[in-house]
Simulated assay, not measured.
Amino acid sequence: FVKTPPWRDAFCMETNDSKNRFTMSTARLHSVDYEIFGDVQGVFFRKYTEEQGRKLGVVGWVKNTPKGTVVGQVQGSPEKVAIMKNWLRNVGSPMSQIDEARFSNEKEVPSLEFTNF
């Protein structure tokens, strides 16, 4: 896979097998909702989620719920959303204990609905 330049906006470059031919394809954006269960409140889970989202370059939101879970939404490239989902499922904040991560409403979106995390 060829790393795309930061100035690319509507297109990305992809390699075609080992022949190194390039084709243009429209950039895709994904959105996914999440709910994280376990010891995820009072352990800076939201703070670390926002930091991780900014590091990855995804956008969205995160908040605590009255039932002790953390919910939110992530939007960005499919690859970065997948990385963020893995982080939410397996890493979290250093003091958190993640028992389960549920993802829903995963879909392709025409544009980002948020400007940051």
Rank of each mutant, 00 (worst) to 15 (best):
K55E: 08
N86D: 14
I98A: 13
E106P: 15
F44I: 00
G57I: 03
K3C: 11
F45H: 05
I98L: 12
D33E: 06
E51Q: 14
Q97K: 11
K63A: 10
G92T: 01
V62N: 00
E106W: 15
N86I: 01
K3S: 07
P110Q: 00
R8G: 11
V58C: 02
G68Q: 04
P6L: 15
G38P: 10
D33S: 11
V71R: 02
T15F: 08
S25P: 09
E113W: 02
R8C: 10
T23N: 05
T26P: 09
T26W: 09
F37M: 02
R46P: 11
W87S: 14
S96Y: 00
E14T: 13
V71D: 01
A101E: 05
Q52F: 13
P66H: 08
R89V: 02
E113N: 00
I98C: 11
K63N: 02
F44Q: 01
A101R: 08
L56M: 02
Y48L: 04
D39I: 15
N20A: 12
R54V: 10
M13N: 10
W87T: 11
P94C: 04
H30R: 14
V58D: 00
T115K: 12
Q41L: 06
V2P: 14
N20I: 15
N20V: 10
G72K: 05
C12H: 13
T15H: 13
S96F: 00
K67P: 06
R46K: 04
R102I: 09
S96H: 06
T23C: 12
V62M: 01
W87I: 01
K80I: 15
V91M: 11
K85D: 02
D99A: 10
S25E: 12
G92V: 03
R28F: 08
V43G: 00
K3M: 10
D39T: 09
K55S: 10
G76Q: 01
L88F: 04
D33F: 07
G38E: 04
E51F: 14
D9T: 13
V109F: 05
M24Q: 03
D9A: 12
N116T: 13
N16F: 03
R21V: 13
V91H: 11
T15D: 14
R8P: 01
G42L: 07
V2S: 05
F37E: 09
R21L: 14
R8H: 12
